[in-house]
Amino acid sequence: MATWMVRKLPSSLSTFSSSLITKSTPEISPPLVGHGGCRLRWASSSSSSSSSTATTSSNSSSSKREKKITDRLSAVIDAVNDRKLPPELRGQRNAVRSETDIINVVEQRIWHSMEEGQFENLPGKGKPLNLNTNPHADPAEDTLYRILSKNGCAPEWVELNKEIRSKVLEWRVALKKAWESKCNGDHNKWVECSEALKIQLRDINDKVFRYNLIVPFGRQMFGLKWEKEVARLEE
Results as ranks from 00 to 15, higher is better:
168 V>N: 01
92 Q>V: 03
71 D>P: 00
67 K>G: 14
186 D>P: 02
53 T>Y: 12
220 Q>W: 03
73 L>V: 10
180 E>Q: 14
163 E>M: 04
202 R>V: 10
26 P>A: 10
38 C>S: 15
23 K>V: 15
102 I>A: 00
89 L>C: 03
26 P>R: 04
186 D>F: 05
150 K>L: 04
2 A>W: 14
106 V>D: 07
62 S>R: 00
132 N>P: 00
64 K>N: 11
209 F>E: 15
173 V>W: 11
162 K>S: 07
25 T>I: 11
197 L>C: 02
181 S>Q: 06
143 T>G: 08
74 S>R: 07
199 I>R: 13
187 H>W: 07
88 E>I: 05
133 T>H: 12
58 S>N: 14
136 H>R: 07
125 K>A: 03
230 V>S: 02
233 L>I: 03
149 S>N: 11
46 S>N: 09
152 G>M: 00
27 E>Q: 06
192 E>S: 09
118 Q>N: 14
68 K>L: 02
206 D>P: 04
95 A>C: 10
47 S>E: 15
104 N>M: 09
60 S>D: 12
201 L>Q: 15
86 P>H: 05
182 K>M: 06
176 K>Q: 15
107 E>A: 15
12 S>W: 13
24 S>W: 10
81 N>S: 09
136 H>T: 14
126 G>V: 05
174 A>L: 13
58 S>G: 05
111 W>Y: 11
107 E>C: 08
38 C>F: 08
227 E>N: 11
151 N>A: 01
234 E>T: 05
35 H>Y: 14
97 R>S: 15
91 G>I: 09
175 L>S: 05
73 L>H: 08
194 S>H: 04
169 L>A: 08
104 N>A: 12
27 E>D: 06
126 G>D: 08
86 P>E: 10
83 R>Y: 02
210 R>E: 06
105 V>R: 02
221 M>Y: 06
173 V>D: 13
39 R>S: 12
35 H>E: 12
215 V>T: 07
231 A>Y: 06
157 W>R: 03
90 R>W: 05
159 E>A: 07
214 I>P: 01
104 N>D: 12
229 E>W: 01
207 K>E: 08
